[in-house]
Design a protein around this nucleic acid. Structure first.
Length: 285
DNA sequence: AGTCGCCTGGTA
DNA sequence: TACCAGGCGACT
């Protein structure tokens, strides 16, 4: 499931692969995922060029030369793949944006993509994801609805305020995008294990010391995720279709019954607010 | 705070 | 064949 590190990886890939490219065409077999409508988006984007790529929370943003922004949410199973025109159809390929990329800061070994007709393919098994055309003002409002970026503007002081503001379980708070942006189930579970905090602990009952440890643990696991180019547990692939490797370093996520990497304990699984929650009851108190 | 819906593929 | 996976909004 694409969370902050996965979307950040795609953002960096796209910056190299398609920045400067011209949009030729938009097609889909799943119009419900194109907002506000296929017709409006197609009309607005065809003929524009890609100015830059951005990310906010789990949203991927493609800034266009006409001041509009294409915003993608990958939800659980979304992929954004860059392929050469005519490449074999990808699994669950539902939205295709044809591009002409004259040049670009292509990575080593990808010089062959220069002056090529490429396709940005949005693939999504579950069809929960979407792409939405926004104005600058709409994007500003959307960005405002998210909490601070854990690898950006989130300070320890602000984090302390957020943690102290609620009695909800700390893990549920970490998943609340309005409070803190970009953390999903994988990194929430792992950050709590690294900080040795039980996921069901009431947020406002964390000590100052625990809060600081958690703040640092969040940054650490997110940075590890980015360094590994994301977690390819099931669906996630980067923009060139390659798997990430953070799944090889999961501390607790999806590791029920396996040994804790911190202590002699065994990873347990529970439900918290309806979501699978993994922890070690030996070292997470 | 809990449940449902959006969907589909993988697993018990 | 039933159930589970989970981001996130809507509803109760």
């Amino acid at each position: 499931m694409p969370e902050l590190p996965e979307v950040e990886t795609i953002k960096r890939d796209l910056s190299k692969l398609i920045a400067g490219g011209k949009i030729l065409d938009l097609t889909t077999d799943s119009a419900k995922q194109v907002l506000p409508s296929l017709e409006k988006v197609e009309k607005a984007i065809v003929g524009t060029t890609i100015a830059k790529i951005g990310r906010r929370a789990k949203l991927l943003q493609i800034f266009l030369s006409n001041n509009k922004i294409l915003v993608f949410h990958l939800k659980l199973t979304g992929r954004i793949l860059i392929r050469e025109k005519g490449a074999p159809k990808d699994d669950w390929q539902h939205i295709t944006i044809k591009l002409k990329v004259e040049n670009g800061n292509l990575p080593a070994g990808k010089a062959g993509l220069k002056n090529k007709n490429l396709e940005l393919r949005f693939c999504d098994s579950r069809k929960f994801g979407w792409v939405k055309l926004m104005t600058n003002e709409e994007l500003r409002i959307t960005n405002q609805e998210y909490g601070p970026e854990p690898l950006g503007d989130l300070s320890l002081k602000t984090f302390r305020e957020i943690v102290a503001s609620t009695r909800r379980p700390i893990k549920v708070l970490l998943l609340d995008q309005k409070k803190i942006a970009g953390i999903g189930n994988i990194y929430a579970n792992d950050a709590l294990n690294l900080a040795k905090i039980h996921p069901a602990r009431k947020s406002n009952q964390l000590t100052n010391e625990e809060t600081k440890k958690l703040f640092n643990a969040i940054k650490k696991v997110l940075k590890a995720g980015i360094k590994c180019r994301g977690a390819s547990d099931q669906y996630y692939l980067d923009a060139l279709g390659h798997r990430g490797s953070y799944q090889d370093h999961f501390l607790v996520y999806a590791r029920a019954g396996k040994p804790c990497r911190n202590c002699d304990g065994k990873i347990e699984k529970m439900k918290l607010a309806g979501r699978g929650t993994y922890f070690c009851s030996e070292c997470q108190k």
